[in-house]
């Protein structure tokens, strides 16, 4: 463990990679790791990018990383893909589009499967963000397929969230989940050379305008790109810069962090309370007695719950 921590401090990739595996696989080692890591962690700038399969997220990511690298920014990438529900395995293909940014020494890319995690704050992703910040990465890009609540929750960690979609005929709004509309800071219509792009821009602009822009609130821009040729990329990079300035001006980086660490503390408390209070209670004789009393309609569940908790001193 000491060795891994030393390696992370020195920015050694092997140590960082091993530590992520510990975070994924081994809850008790993970706790020890995080205890050692916390004093080293910093507040990184988190960018989330999400959208349906085939919308060009990875190609866009590659272009963004290239532009940021030109400014000397070090970037960590967490590419999340769903695990197969039947086999538990996963196919992680986000590296395919990464090209030679994958060998850039200032870029660390890690693919990750969701492993059946329920929604909410995904502790594995969150702890990996902390780890990458401690290893000296300035920007952390989280890529997910925007299909389920799980993915939305992961992207919701981000300070700036990009929602990527492509021009679609007809039911264009159907392709964007309501939850995605709410968390998007920038909407990107990629493959904008396909028919219907302008109409899609218009529709999305009407939807975002409904959020009601005041002086201090952010009006999410709707931008067209063609990731493969690089068209529209300068506009997207500028849009991200503007959002970064905006969140800094209003102290939103800190504020978001506060919201997230509060959530993290609550979910850790829930877990420990479950282990230390709820689970022993469920295994107790009083609990069995309560069930039989309910079965016979001798006592109602509300009274019984209060009694059970009182016996435990809660």
């Amino acid at each position: 463990m000491e060795e891994i921590l030393k390696g992370i401090k020195a920015g050694e990739e092997r140590a960082v990679a091993r530590a992520i595996t510990l975070i994924e696989n081994n809850p008790s080692e993970r706790e020890r790791l995080l205890q050692g890591l916390y004093p080293l962690a910093r507040l990184p700038y988190l960018i989330g990018i999400t959208g349906p399969p085939g919308s060009g997220k990875s190609t866009l990511s590659e272009k963004l990383i290239r532009a940021w690298r030109a400014r000397g920014i070090r970037i960590g990438v967490i590419a999340v893909d769903p695990s197969s529900q039947s086999s538990g395995g996963a196919l992680l293909g986000d590296r395919i589009r990464m090209g030679d940014v994958a060998v850039d020494q200032g870029v660390f890319i890690r693919s990750m499967a969701t492993r059946g995690a329920l929604g909410g704050l995904n502790p594995v992703v969150f702890d990996t963000v902390l780890l990458l910040s401690a290893a000296g990465y300035d920007y952390i890009l989280i890529e997910t397929v925007g299909v389920g609540q799980n993915e939305i929750d992961i992207v919701n960690l981000a300070n700036t969230t990009l929602i990527v979609t492509i021009p679609a005929a007809g039911d264009e709004i159907q392709s964007l989940k309501a939850g995605l509309m709410e968390i998007g800071d920038i909407f990107v219509i990629n493959k904008a050379d396909l028919a219907g792009a302008d109409r899609m821009v218009l529709t999305l602009e009407q939807m975002t305008a409904l959020e009601g822009a005041t002086e201090e609130s952010w009006l999410p821009p709707v931008l067209k790109t063609i990731a493969t040729s690089g068209e529209g990329l300068p506009g997207l990079i500028e849009g991200i810069d503007r959002h970064y300035q905006y969140i800094n001006k209003y102290g939103l980086l800190e504020e978001k962090r506060k919201v997230i660490i509060k959530k993290q503390l609550i979910s850790l408390l829930e877990k420990r309370l479950k282990e230390r209070v709820l689970e022993p209670l469920i295994g107790s004789a009083e609990f069995k007695r309560a069930i039989s009393r309910m079965l016979n309609f001798e006592e109602d569940p509300y009274t019984l719950v209060e009694k059970l908790l009182q016996e435990k001193g809660v």
Binding site: S83, S87, G88, G89, A90, L92, G93, R95, R97, A113
Partner: peptide
Amino acid sequence: IARGLREAGMEVVYTG
């Protein structure tokens, strides 16, 4: 092969 290994419960990174 990548698909087959996934079906066997493994996590497969495919690089292209």
